[in-house]
Computed example of a mutant assay.
Amino acid sequence: MKILEQIAQSIVEQTSSLLGVSMSITDAEGVIVACDRKERIGSLHRASAQVIREGREVVFTKNKAKILENVLPGIATPIRLHNQIIGVLGIIGEPSEVEKFVNIVRNHVEMILHENFRTESLLLQMKTTELFVQHLIHFNEWENNGELENYCEMLGYRFHLPRVCLILHLPSLAQIKAEAKPVAFSQIELKNVICHLFQATMSDIVCPIGQDKWIVLKQIEEQKMGTLAELCERSARKLTLFLERHHLHCKVSISYGKCYKGLEGASKSYRQAHKALIIGLEKNKNNAVYSFDSWAILPDIFLEEMDFSFLDLFADDIQKIWAHPEAEMLVKTFLSYCENNMNVSRTARFLYVHRNTLIYRLNKINQLFKIDVQSFEQCQVLYIVLKKSIENRALQRKG
């Protein structure tokens, strides 16, 4: 069994050093896979076949060992995992002297094997869940949705009740990955923490979706969505404390979409949560929680989703503003004026300028565009044009 081969040598080295005895471990085929005498590793230990066949401890005295090939005096005992013999543990030495170690060491080996098997099983389950979630969040790319539904049913997941998608952003995890630093906790430990914070039922799906992101697909009734922000705020604080205890310092951010039924609904909620996270981290860095239906970021999401094709309609006006010698100042002034609810006094305080200075600048904008700066509809159009124009210029500079 692979799991035995992977950990056998470390078990032998640690245990033999601690107890001061010589040890070996063979696999179910009788091949020595671990030994403190490393020259024996890889050799066939035929006597292990007797131990495996009889399923019991066998004593090898000096006289008995002499007539057997590749056998040393000591005691050999079967190693079991889930009631199946998977190998043989050999404690080498005078049988009367080493017998006191046999049960202790065998139990220790089997306990480590059980723990490693459990860990491997959990990691495999996590990988399977992650693969399913990756397919799910790209639901629209599937040509045959029935395949995904069968996959879902095979894993035992149900999407007939409303679910909301939450994305947990833990940037320090990507940093330590890039710097190849050791992590003081396992993925399973982190998953247990996240499950403790968010998982109300076993139907809630929790798994990583990248180096620095985890996803939670949580069953929730629509009327309880109002409590989600508080849960996320509380959970972000606790996750931050968890990371800090392991010397990882970063801002934990959590975003979520709306709740929907079905696979397509879960995919839609993910896209909303993902968009809310991107815009939230860019526009509201001090916040820990971002909701897709928050009006604090919805205008920016609206602008983000809008393509650049409509800018052709305003090409002359855009060229006029950027050709102006005071373009940067005028654009900043107008955007600030709109973002401060078209309130002159508030905008002046925000820009640290005199009220008359602000009015002078707004008059210049009025002259450039023939716009009524007191009209919400007119300012709204120019605001969108300028915001997308700035974004377009930034992309062109990068290109």
Rank of each mutant, 00 (worst) to 15 (best):
V105M: 11
E233G: 00
W322Y: 02
W322E: 03
N366L: 07
A49Q: 11
V373K: 01
T333H: 01
L248N: 04
T61D: 14
K181S: 10
T128V: 14
K283Y: 08
N145F: 15
L148I: 15
K100V: 03
E244A: 12
E147N: 14
Q367M: 11
F292T: 00
A236Q: 10
G87M: 02
L113A: 00
N287A: 07
P182V: 03
I318H: 01
I25W: 00
F185G: 05
I359A: 02
M342C: 09
G30V: 03
S121C: 11
V289P: 04
L131W: 02
E377C: 12
H135R: 13
Q9Y: 10
G280I: 10
Q84N: 08
Q223M: 10
N150P: 01
W214A: 00
C259G: 10
I137T: 13
F117G: 00
L277W: 05
R397N: 14
G210K: 03
E120M: 08
L124A: 15
P171E: 04
M154V: 08
K320A: 02
V206W: 01
P171C: 07
G74T: 00
F132P: 06
L311W: 08
V133L: 02
E189Y: 06
T333K: 02
H45Y: 14
T129L: 09
N63R: 14
V216Q: 04
Q50R: 02
M306R: 14
P78W: 05
R393F: 08
K364N: 07
G55M: 04
I25S: 00
K285C: 10
R56K: 15
F117Q: 05
F350I: 01
L19R: 13
L72P: 06
L368A: 11
L19G: 02
F242Y: 13
L173I: 04
C165M: 07
I321L: 05
S24P: 02
L124Y: 14
L243P: 01
H169R: 09
S269D: 01
Y151S: 13
G146K: 13
V193M: 15
Q187S: 13
W295E: 15
V98H: 06
K285S: 15
L173Y: 04
K275R: 03
T347N: 04
E305N: 15
N192S: 13
N107M: 10
V385I: 15
K370D: 13
A8E: 00
R349Y: 05
I52F: 09
L330H: 01
P95F: 06
S172G: 05
I41T: 03
C152G: 10
D36G: 01
R393P: 07
I279Y: 11
L131K: 12
